[in-house]
């Protein structure tokens, strides 16, 4: 469904992603793992059609991503991006205006579960509320691909269960879910495949349950093996 063909992205002389090849198939929840700055976000932005690769291409159903693929790929960036004059309601209306696969009813349900209200103003949202709003508005789309960049960032322990559940509700045979995180423990149970990114390159890709079955190795163990000391996050 989504394929990265030897994708390289350079910012000036800095190489953010290097020769990254990857095939994401429907029916799986992928965990894209790696420390901050390893290139996860840059790759996702390319797959979302927000920035262009320096070399290589990201293909959605065989065609390079772009205006058309944005209709079918729901992307949630890690940074907040809503206009500051908006309310929670305005954010939903904006998505409804631009995405045919967006359901305002689903959005209403999701913001309620996230303990937000339509009247809240973007300007006054805490970082945790903002993180929940981003997830709600992204998951209210009925897309073929969901790419959530750091969905658990800034989410307190109590809300994490709700987030995990809403994400799992969207996992389906015909959909790709890609979640990036440096909070590996959050990913252990929900992802069935893991992609490890190190210095812009793909370090490993595996079936998580098979790895546990064959070697008794968890995602976190493998993470430590790959990144060693540098992967240890605060």
């Amino acid at each position: 469904m989504l394929e990265s063909r030897s994708v390289t992205k350079k910012f000036g002389s800095k190489v953010a992603v290097e020769q990254l090849s990857l095939v994401l198939e429907p029916g799986h929840v992928y965990a894209m793992l790696g420390p901050n700055g390893s290139g996860k976000t840059t790759w996702m932005k390319m797959a979302a059609g927000l920035i262009k690769p320096t070399e290589g291409a990201v293909l959605f159903k065989g065609s390079p991503v772009g205006i058309e693929s944005r209709k079918h790929i729901a992307y949630m960036s890690t940074e907040p991006y809503f206009y500051s004059w908006m309310t929670v309601k305005d954010v939903g209306r904006y998505y409804r205006d631009f995405f045919e696969d967006f359901s305002y009813d689903d959005y209403k349900g999701l913001i309620k579960r996230m303990e937000l209200t339509e009247e809240m103003r973007i300007r006054t949202l805490s970082s945790g509320m903002m993180a929940k709003l981003k997830i709600a508005v992204t998951l209210a789309r009925d897309s073929e691909v969901y790419m959530l960049d750091e969905p658990f960032n800034g989410i307190d322990l109590l809300a994490r269960d709700e987030i995990r559940e809403s994400i799992l509700e969207h996992a389906a045979e015909n959909k790709v879910l890609l979640l990036s995180s440096h909070l590996v423990e959050e990913m252990e149970a929900i992802a069935d495949r893991a992609v490890f990114i190190k210095n812009g390159r793909k370090a490993d890709e595996c079936d998580v349950e098979d790895m546990r079955n064959a070697k008794g190795v968890s995602m976190a163990d493998r993470y430590r093996e790959i990144y060693g000391h540098e992967g240890v996050q605060a």
Binding site: A48, G49, L50, I67, E68, R70, K71, Y75, S77, E79, P80, Y81, F82, Y83, Y94, F98, F99
Partner: peptide
């Protein structure tokens, strides 16, 4: 700014 996503994430050229 990050608000650029608001325009460029939409299916518009």
């Amino acid at each position: 700014t990050k608000q650029s996503y608001m325009l460029f994430m939409t299916p518009n050229s």
